[in-house]
Computed example of a mutant assay.
Amino acid sequence: MERAVIVVDGYVQGVGFRWWATSVARELRLTGRAENLSDGRVRVDAQGSTEALGSLIRAMTEQPTRTGRPGRVTGHEIDWVEVEPARKGFSAY
């Protein structure tokens, strides 16, 4: 199990990106949350299998999107952080 915090730049607020990311993460059985940041970026904190995290990261950052991802991602940052074992579910804030 691993945990990644992915922050994406671009046209990602007000277009359903958070809700789309939440849906994909749930399909992949990840736990965590997606949230808008005050600077216009979206932050996704996700935890689960390495394979599932890789799938989420690819879907969030691929150019051009093959998954119907809303908005437009122009950049991203990924931080690998300590796992939180008690996490449940995936939500959007």
Rank of each mutant, 00 (worst) to 15 (best):
W80N: 14
E62Y: 03
E84N: 11
S49Q: 00
L56M: 01
T67Y: 14
R66S: 14
L28P: 03
P70R: 08
R26A: 06
R72H: 10
V12A: 03
T22F: 05
R87W: 04
I78T: 12
E77K: 11
D39C: 07
V44N: 00
W20V: 01
G16Y: 10
I57F: 11
R66C: 11
T31L: 02
G32F: 00
E2L: 10
R18Y: 03
G16C: 13
M60F: 12
R72K: 11
S49V: 00
W20M: 00
A46S: 04
V24I: 14
R26D: 06
D45V: 13
L56F: 01
G71T: 04
I57P: 03
V81F: 10
S38K: 07
S38M: 06
R66G: 09
I6R: 02
A21Y: 01
T74N: 12
R41Y: 14
R3H: 07
G10E: 10
A86H: 13
Q13I: 03
R43C: 10
G48C: 01
E77Y: 01
R43E: 08
G48A: 01
F17V: 07
E84G: 07
R72E: 07
I57Q: 05
L37C: 07
T65Y: 15
G75P: 10
S49Y: 00
D9M: 03
K88I: 15
V83H: 09
M60V: 08
V81K: 12
A46H: 13
P70C: 08
A92S: 10
Q13A: 02
E27L: 09
R58M: 11
D45T: 14
E84F: 03
W80L: 12
L30C: 06
V44P: 01
W20Q: 00
Y93S: 15
R66K: 07
V12M: 08
R41G: 07
R58A: 15
R69E: 09
R33Y: 12
V7D: 01
Q63V: 08
D79Y: 09
F90P: 10
T50C: 15
A21K: 05
L56V: 00
T65Q: 12
V81C: 15
T31M: 02
P70T: 05
R58Y: 09
R29G: 11
R87L: 09
D39T: 06
M1Y: 09
R41K: 12
L56A: 00
R43V: 02
E35M: 15
H76V: 04
P85L: 04
D39I: 11
V81P: 15
Q47G: 02
T50D: 09
A25K: 06
V12I: 04
G16P: 11
D9A: 01
E35S: 09
L30V: 03
V73R: 10
G14C: 07
E82P: 03
E84K: 05
R43P: 02
V5Y: 06
D39K: 03
S91C: 12
V73P: 14
R69I: 11
